[in-house]
């Protein structure tokens, strides 16, 4: 489950409101205005990118949304939203390949979708709950799955007093899963980030796990989410360095780390089957890795070392929903 918004809501203060579309605020004589909700459907929880375990010629991308789908969030994708997978092939922080997902409204438990390329050409269409195989050997699916994220969230928020209890055990998310031939990008070394756009405005974005969550203060999170990675160093470099200093890093290490962590793009050598920091695999314990990295070894882990459910070996690699 995703770091940015779920952290914001459950831990650092902002809140899930209006559990679903209409959350009347009672009172016998109220008009019961619908609640303003944090829209879980465009709230990116996590981004994964890894070499396909079933076909090393392919690379897999997974974007998850709807934290605690069905309980705190809905389970659908937003028909008014645009879901983007951005791929940078020349390390300049701008997208050279963009895959945009557009969804229909849900009818009878299904949403149809179209994916376009950056030039606006449709690339593939499908519907949730199905796997669509691409002619070039890739596959796409969108649906409800078990949440692959694992983390002792309460321990984190309790001054790193970790108990090893996975807060996200039993939770579901909605995921977009796309497996593409690595040759699509013309290079093995790519940078990836996901973004969601609602009503013409970028609502959220995600590269590496926890960058926004841990290193960007709450007052700047919205700004961070609405900007492009290419501007990260200029806009947020000083802020990230300050945060890293606060986590016990020396000025030199903070500067060095900031230059690696920004722009917030998940980099991967697709020719390698290695995991995080080379992309991010589902089973990677990114929390342990990041806690250790960001705290300069002062905090080594949350004692949750694996997901509560095993990951299937085949596409789409995510577990069935709880």
């Amino acid at each position: 489950m995703g770091m940015p918004w779920i952290f914001n809501r459950l831990f650092t203060g902002l809140v899930f409101v209006g559990l679903f579309a209409v959350n009347p605020l009672l009172g016998s004589d109220h008009l019961d205005s619908p609640g303003v909700k944090v829209d879980g459907s465009v709230d990116i929880n996590d981004l994964y990118a890894f070499q396909s375990p079933t076909n090393p010629a392919n690379v897999v991308f997974i974007i998850t949304v709807n934290p605690f789908a069905g309980v705190l969030s809905g389970t659908t994708l937003n028909p008014a939203g645009v879901y983007e997978l951005n791929v940078d092939t020349n390390a300049n922080g701008t997208a050279d390949h963009v895959f945009r997902f557009y969804f229909s409204a849900a009818r009878r438990g299904v949403q149809r979708y179209v994916v376009t390329r950056a030039n606006g050409n449709p690339f593939v269409s499908g519907q949730t709950g199905q796997v669509t195989r691409l002619q070039n050997g890739g596959s796409v699916t969108v649906g409800l799955f078990e949440d692959p994220f694992f983390f002792d969230l309460n321990g984190f928020n309790n001054g790193f007093a970790f108990t090893g209890r996975d807060f996200f055990a039993g939770a579901n998310i909605t995921a977009i899963v796309m497996e593409l031939p690595r040759s699509t990008f013309g290079t093995n070394n790519i940078g990836v980030w996901a973004s969601t756009v609602l009503q013409g405005r970028q609502f959220d974005r995600k590269g590496r796990p926890a960058i926004n969550t841990v290193l960007i203060p709450s007052t700047m999170k919205n700004q961070f989410n609405s900007t492009q990675p290419a501007f990260d160093s200029a806009l947020f470099g000083a802020t990230v360095r300050t945060s890293l200093l606060g986590l016990g890093n020396s000025p030199e290490r903070a500067a060095s780390l900031a230059s690696v962590l920004l722009p917030d793009i998940l980099t991967i050598d697709t020719s390698s089957s290695a995991g995080f920091l080379n992309g991010r695999q589902l089973a990677n314990d990114v929390i342990d890795a990041e806690l250790s990295l960001l705290s300069n070894g002062a905090v080594t882990g949350d004692r949750v070392n694996a997901n509560d459910k095993p990951f299937p070996a085949q596409f789409p690699y995510l577990g069935a929903p709880n």
């Binding site: 849900a106 009878r108 438990g109 299904v110 269409s125 949730t128 709950g129 649906g143 409800l144």
Partner: peptide, 17 residues
Amino acid sequence: LRDSAPLFDGRGGIGEK
């Protein structure tokens, strides 16, 4: 897309809470 994707028959899927 009208003729391409057969519609799901309503079992499970998304949209449920």
